[in-house]
Design a protein around this nucleic acid. Structure first.
Lengths: 179, 179
DNA sequence: TACATTTATGCAACTTGTTGCACAAAGGAG
DNA sequence: CTCCTTTGTGCAACAAGTTGCATAAATGTA
């Protein structure tokens, strides 16, 4: 049920329309939680039905912009959910299934695929580091909220670094079957 | 569609029953792909319907053991899927949503939750390292298949290490709101 | 103004993962 | 042998995520 709470969080940061939310999910929130616009509209409808958010301004008809804002109930719900304890999501990565499959097949070489992933993780890492350099320059004082945002960014960086290191080491250790 | 291929892989390593697969998913495969027994039975039925696996031995009725084995079509399907390129699954971690929510709420302290996650990641890391020490002792020569299995294990280790480091640094940087 | 393009909203069907339960068989204890 | 527990199989309902498309409004252009 995190999409609901990711939406509430984003709307608390700044009330906006569904399309704007979708854009934000692509850019910032999407670094740790993704959602398509269809998912977003569906969940916005549910949130409205549950009285956790409301439409601000003119809700004329289909196709016209609808601005949403969080109600008191929504804030309470977000706080309640935040205080629950929840275990980390386990790894679920198809590439690892494919490695294991390659091991049992013996006829598939995944070296180029690992090399491709290495490049993708490198790109992500650089993107995150660019944001860090831009928004969280060295030595500048941080508000408590800023510290939390930086922590989220650091998670992305650690994560990408870990995969990057893994790809490199895996390639070094003669991944190819055709030696 | 990775569950299907994880099952094919596991059945190629060793044909077995649904319950045995479920146990293997809990132990080894579950480190990078999880599935409940209900999911497994459902997918086994689909695989059988598609002619990719077959029942070996006596398939009497409900409640009696059914042993499955991969057919040629299944092996081909696994190989085909293995050769497709697929992007890494993006991060999707509720704790990060909660951090961001805490940042905007300003009234929630997630320090103890981060500490709890730190402990969980520590446990996972130790478990992986124990397996590494047991099955892949230093300097022993590895078959190509063994190298791939070790690579999968290393992924788990890198991943847990990254989260561990993140938890530690996040706790150091005054996560608590109540300073 | 008329028309085409882009943006925003949204439905419907499908796939995948989760939860709760039910029933059959196997195996042990009396 | 009978009862009881455990193990194995499986259905059904639901929740969450994905894909494809439809329609309305806003915007640009002839």
């Amino acid at each position: 049920m995190s999409l609901r709470h990711a939406l509430l969080t984003s709307l608390m940061e700044k009330p906006c329309t569904g399309a704007e939310l979708a854009r934000r999910f692509e850019k910032s929130i999407g670094h740790f939680w993704q959602a398509s616009h269809q998912q977003i509209y569906r969940e916005l409808a549910a949130l409205e039905a549950d009285g956790l958010i409301e439409v601000r301004g003119l809700a004329t008809a289909r196709g016209s912009q609808r601005h949403f804002a969080v109600l008191a109930g929504g804030r309470n719900e977000l706080e309640r959910w935040c205080l629950l304890s929840a275990d980390p999501h386990p790894v679920r990565e198809a590439l690892l299934v494919r490695l294991r499959a390659a091991a049992v097949l013996g006829t598939v070489d995944l070296a180029s695929e690992v090399r491709r992933h290495l490049g993708l993780h490198q790109d992500s890492l650089r993107r995150y580091q660019a944001i860090q350099g831009r928004d969280f320059a060295e030595g500048s004082p941080l508000t408590p909220a800023g510290e939390l945002q930086l922590a989220v960014l650091r998670a992305g960086i650690e994560f990408e670094r870990a995969w990057l290191a893994w790809c490199q080491q895996t390639l070094c250790e003669g991944l190819s079957e055709k030696k």
